[in-house]
């Protein structure tokens, strides 16, 4: 892999509450190369979105980065002061949120929202910003952009709004886009279009993507590599093909097993027994051990690190045991 664009090392995010400090992300490390698409999967509450928010410096207080390092293009960014971080947001790192229906300000035309973003980052004049806005709308496949540019968000359908959101995220040609469940709120038929659009645009511009989702199908189609998160940690990371076809961590294997296959007759959908622990009640040792069919003594007492396992890396004692004896 070439020099990584984004490097996250031992990231730890804490949320202080009245009943003590919760550790929402613990020892999260990964890297994204320029132009690479990294999928991040996991159950709700596993810390996927929080990781994205930490990278872009928009953790909602009281959540805070308590340790580790985030590097972007060779520069440390987790300790940047707000104005410097702001110049990075939108310009170098774009973001797409889950719900296109609520991502746009209802009181402004999409044209003015595009233009303000363009003017802030590219320093264009009024006319130049509008021209660029039209180009962008055209690029994301909005029909009749000359007419649509002066319309308000509520005049667009969900899919069209997400196209506008993508245009906004890509307005300044960022080198990295963090897409946080960009299709969850959309119709299934629209989801594929939006993913295809995102893939095409980021490929054309050489934009790296951190794609947060819980849809393994989207990951399999879109991502180059995938990180699987569980209870605030990465439990497995590797090339998509390896992780999907040869999962190394029992949790990943469970996730893959839970995808129903068309045509396969099954009485019941496969599922992983139990539920992911709440942040305040993460068990000692491996967080997954109470639900793991292969758990043994070491899993209950010692926390596994992310170590090479087959073609990928997994945080599981099964592999350490296999390697050492």
């Amino acid at each position: 892999m070439s020099q990584p664009l984004l490097e996250v090392e031992h990231l730890r995010v804490e949320i202080p509450t009245r009943r003590g400090v919760l550790t929402a992300l613990d020892d999260v490390s990964f890297a994204i190369a320029p132009g690479e698409v990294l999928g991040v999967v996991g159950e709700s509450g596993a810390g996927k979105s929080l990781t994205g928010a930490a990278v872009i410096g928009l953790l909602e207080p009281p959540a805070r980065v308590a340790g580790g390092r985030i590097g972007f293009a060779g520069r440390r960014i987790d300790d940047l002061a707000d104005p410097a971080m702001r110049r990075l947001r939108g310009k170098e790192i774009g973001a797409i949120f889950q719900d296109p229906l609520t991502s746009l300000d209802p009181l402004y035309t999409i044209g003015s929202q595009l233009a303000e973003t363009i003017r802030v980052h590219l320093g264009l004049g009024r006319a130049g910003a509008r021209r660029r806005a039209l180009e962008l709308l055209n690029e994301v496949g909005i029909p009749a952009p000359e007419r649509r540019i002066d319309q308000y968000p509520h005049q667009f359908s969900g899919g069209m709004r997400q196209r506008v959101v993508i245009a906004l995220a890509l307005a300044a040609n960022p080198r990295l886009v963090i897409a946080d469940e960009p299709t969850t709120a959309l119709d299934v038929s629209i989801q594929a279009q939006i993913i295809a659009l995102l893939r095409r645009l980021t490929r054309e511009h050489g934009t790296a993507v951190m794609l947060v989702t819980h849809d393994m199908g989207v990951i399999a189609e879109t991502a180059d590599r995938v990180a699987v998160m569980y209870a605030g940690r990465i439990v497995e990371i590797g090339a998509v093909r390896d992780v999907v076809l040869r999962p190394q961590h029992p949790y990943t294997a469970g996730l893959m097993g839970a995808i129903p296959v068309l045509g396969a007759r099954r009485e019941r959908l496969l599922q992983i027994d139990g539920a992911m622990p709440r942040l305040g009640a993460i068990p000692g040792g491996c967080a997954f051990h109470p639900r793991c069919a292969h758990a043994f003594d070491r899993c209950r007492s010692e926390r596994p690190e992310l170590l090479p396992a087959g073609p990928s890396a997994a945080a599981c004692w099964l592999h350490a045991e296999a390697d050492h004896g």
Partner: peptide, 28 residues
């Protein structure tokens, strides 16, 4: 709201987010 978060994610200056977007919506 999401659109304020998104406005920050777009890298708009605080003044523009707070007064242009947040205040205008709050005043309705």
């Amino acid at each position: 709201t999401d659109y304020i978060k998104f406005a920050r994610a777009r890298g708009l200056p605080n003044r523009l987010v707070n007064f242009g977007h947040a205040l205008k919506n709050a005043l309705v």
